[in-house]
Amino acid sequence: MHVVPALLELQSRFLDALYDDAEAGPTEALVGAGLDPAARLRIYRHAAAQIHADALRATYPALLALVGEAFFEQVGVHYRRAHPSRSGNLQAFGAHFADFLESLQATGTLPYLGDVARLEWQRQQAALAGTAEALSAGVVGEAFAGVDGAVRIALHPSVRRFASPHPVLSIWQYAMQPSPGRLTLPEHGDRLLLWRSEAEVAMAPIDAASFACIGALLCGVTLDAAHAAARAKDSAFDLPACITSLVAQELVVAITPVHRKEHPACA
């Protein structure tokens, strides 16, 4: 009779077998009872692989549509070996998928795939980000009227920026809702603003100066510093229009006066 190994050895060998088909697992410690112990272990191997594949499918629907089921599944198998799940919370699985995709020779002819994956990861982060009450236009107006000096503007926790040399928004939209005929892609890349609106994640292209301004605000610098960052991209940048647009999208959640001379630097 075989003795059941200690838990550390048992669990290590069991998990090795779930991640790698070549690992037999602790089959000598299993009761077959009419079935090959290896076949019993394969039920768990298949289930774990399916759980991780489903998690990737849920996070990367556009990517799945672009590359097709078979390729997506194959990449998923290699991905979970290279980047095993590190959390009991599946929402964290898939964080390295974009970099992994770009490391594959097979995706070399589709250089935008990595950024489509990054965009989808950012969409998931926006969907799961915290909640904050937006300031109305009236409250924002009163806040500015009552402040004499520097202010900081806090944006909704779901706000994200994403830039790519590829037209990822058009690609993502085509993947999610394919239209008949051939897709003509813009020749430029995208700068996008992402945020959660009700239960959906919204995405909108923004210009380089607004991108810089919002990036600076997200870093927590003063509005003056954010304005300077935007003007470095476009000397004609219209700050009131940019802030008005953010307020209209219900993305401004706090305006606070800055009392200290020291302002945080934006990395």
Binding site: V4, L7, L15, Y19, Y44, A47, I51, S85, R86
Partner: peptide, 14 residues
Amino acid sequence: AVGGRHSNDLLPLP
């Protein structure tokens, strides 16, 4: 899970 790797499944104990 073991060694920081998770199966994200409910695995049997001896």
